[in-house]
Amino acid sequence: MSTQVPKQKEAESPAEEESAPSVGKQRRDQAKAERRTAAEKQKEAAEKAKEAEDTYHIKVFRYDPEVEGKQEPRFDEFHVPFTKGMTVLDALMYARDHYDPSLTFRHSCRQAICGSDAFFVNGSQKLGCKTQLSELSEPVRIEPLPHQDVVKDLVVDMDHFYEQMHAIEPYFDPDELPDGELEEQRQTRENREKVKMSTRCIWCGACMSSCNIAAGDNQYLGPAAINKAYRFAMDEREGEARKQERLKIIEQEHGVWRCQTQFSCTEVCPKDIPLTEHIQELKREAVKSNLKFW
């Protein structure tokens, strides 16, 4: 399992094949090159932190398609002063704000709900904000999610993931609604409980990245999209007709039957969604509904 930088860039030797940099960019690069003092200061700070006893050693994947020296993927090492409760995300933020402002990663809520910061940490998909440094062995290796194109450093292109999520018609679409704008649909507690875990998905992409099938079959809907389909197919408020349509979408060639129940998605899901079980259940539903129509 390896991290992918966009293919056309990988083969290129940096300077020649790039289109000529703009005058502005040349000037910028020159200015940066001259900025030794700032860089030295950062280095000093990093050295000091290294000497201090309580630091964590992290190794972070770096890549930028347009910055010299970063076009070839590499790992940068940072020694981050450790404080109790520090997460992988905290360490990255510290390294960015104190050592290298160009260190790039998505993050927003810091509380495992926005789903921005799934990374490949010591060989496994994890949410940076929810992963304690103290539970990891050093050096902590932080890479972008595997099987997705890397945009820069830890940022991957999520477009394919979003396309798969959209492919299952991810919106509630009931056969009928109650009359009256103040009339609610009834739903049993049991049914709400049944779909509850599936609604917890935060679209972080960890599951898709961990899935061997998705890695080999780019058209495979993937665990998150199938779980999204489950969320609607199992919701009693939608009705039987819509459910049958949904089952048709997920039992297509690149749908549920591709899953080989390896449970890797379930293992990495930061919201503990039983993804594999949901996929299996949809397989059974698909079989049942096909029998019905025979």
């Binding site: 919106y171 509630f172 009931p174 609604l177 704008e181 103040l182 609610e184 507690r189 709400r192 408020r237």
Partner: peptide, 23 residues
């Protein structure tokens, strides 16, 4: 607010439910 909340329910939002199935 009441009709906008019911709009969300009609859009399938997974509200917690009472024994009688109401939100």
């Amino acid at each position: 607010s009441p009709k906008e909340v019911i709009q969300l329910e009609h859009w399938g939002m997974a509200f917690s439910r009472e024994e009688d199935g109401r939100v």
